[in-house]
């Protein structure tokens, strides 16, 4: 087995801390925070699609389940914020298990359709349960999180808090990548019948991966609710699921840095070009097309290739 990619983890830690001390502007900090949110979600999707070959177009729904659980429980019932994260994670796990049980037996387009349908149903529920979710106009007044007596109420504090979580998540991800389990998933992706003949319980493994990633999504969703203090169904629509999908693909499927790279590029780039207003979409679209056409392994594949040239020779 390969050694863990310490370089990448050190780079993350150095970048996040240097950025914090050099840049005081809250807008730039908020962009990095959004990059981290998207990066975690895209990496989770990368595990599903890039490793295990499960196409899920319903990831935004699990993200939303976490966010709404936290939102509803703190706004209407005043429950301890930390507890709501756990409750959200639990609900999401159970829902993913129940949904995954029948749907994960499907493959390719059919699985995509089923998860798409699930995502839409959840989106409709957020909209229609007006009394508790606040309906289309959203849920206001979500409590803030406090740790060791410090209330996390501005960009800087949240930046520190979330950076720690993000680095922790990246380490976990890296460990996963080098573990036996990730090879098991890649094996399943290559050939289900072959892995069955080796005694792997394919449907069970898939179900556990699906439920676990959904649980993590919900945790991130809860944190998102604390961060923005306001949620509405728009943030959890099909568009977000597709955005995540593009991020994972663009960054590089089946590679642990892929989700983060894709999220960083697709979150920062639109901000850079938003001065062009009318041409924003054209520039964005052509960039996507170029990457998908010429770099099928995504950005992380490209970087690996470039690094490989120097390292090997």
């Amino acid at each position: 087995m390969k050694k863990t990619n310490k370089l990448y983890l050190i780079f993350l830690i150095v970048f996040l801390s240097v950025f914090y001390f050099l840049v005081e502007n809250q807008f730039y900090r908020s962009i990095v925070i959004y990059v981290m949110f998207n990066a975690i979600n895209a990496s989770l999707l990368n595990i599903l699609f890039g490793y295990a070959g499960i196409i899920s177009l319903g990831q935004a729904a699990f993200f939303g389940i976490g966010a709404y659980t936290t939102g509803i429980l703190t706004v209407h019932f005043g429950i301890n914020p930390f507890l709501t994260i756990l409750i959200g994670a639990f609900i999401s796990f159970v829902v993913a298990y129940i949904v995954g049980f029948p749907t994960l037996k499907l493959h390719g387009h059919y699985l995509a359709m089923a998860t798409l349908g699930f995502g839409m149903i959840v989106y409709i529920l957020f909209n229609e349960f007006t009394d508790i979710t606040g309906g289309p106009s959203g849920l206001v007044g979500i409590a803030k999180l406090s740790i060791f007596g410090i209330l996390i109420d501005d960009e800087s504090k949240f930046y520190i808090f979330f950076s720690v979580i993000f680095v922790g998540f990246s380490i976990l991800l890296e460990l996963f990548d080098k573990s036996f389990y990730s090879y098991k998933l890649k094996f399943i992706k290559e050939s289900e019948s072959a892995s069955k003949s080796f005694g792997i319980n394919v449907s069970k493994v898939k179900l556990i991966v699906f439920a676990t990633t959904s649980m993590f999504s919900a945790v991130v969703g809860s944190l998102f609710a604390f961060y923005s203090g306001f949620i509405s169904p728009v943030s959890f629509s099909l568009k977000y699921s597709i955005d995540l999908f593009v991020m994972a693909t663009l960054g590089g499927l089946g590679s642990i840095t892929g989700g983060t790279l894709g999220a960083a590029l697709l979150t920062v780039f639109p901000e850079l070009i938003s001065n062009f207003e009318d041409y924003e979409m054209i520039i964005y679209g052509s960039l996507l097309a170029i990457i998908v056409m010429f770099f099928p392994q995504g950005i992380s594949g490209l970087i690996k290739k470039m690094l490989g040239k120097y390292v090997r020779s």
């Binding site: 807008f27 908020s30 962009i31 959004y34 959203g138 923005s228 306001f230 949620i231 509405s232 728009v234 943030s235 901000e271």
Partner: peptide
Amino acid sequence: GEDAEARK
């Protein structure tokens, strides 16, 4: 028309 976008 998105919340997060407006906030950014």
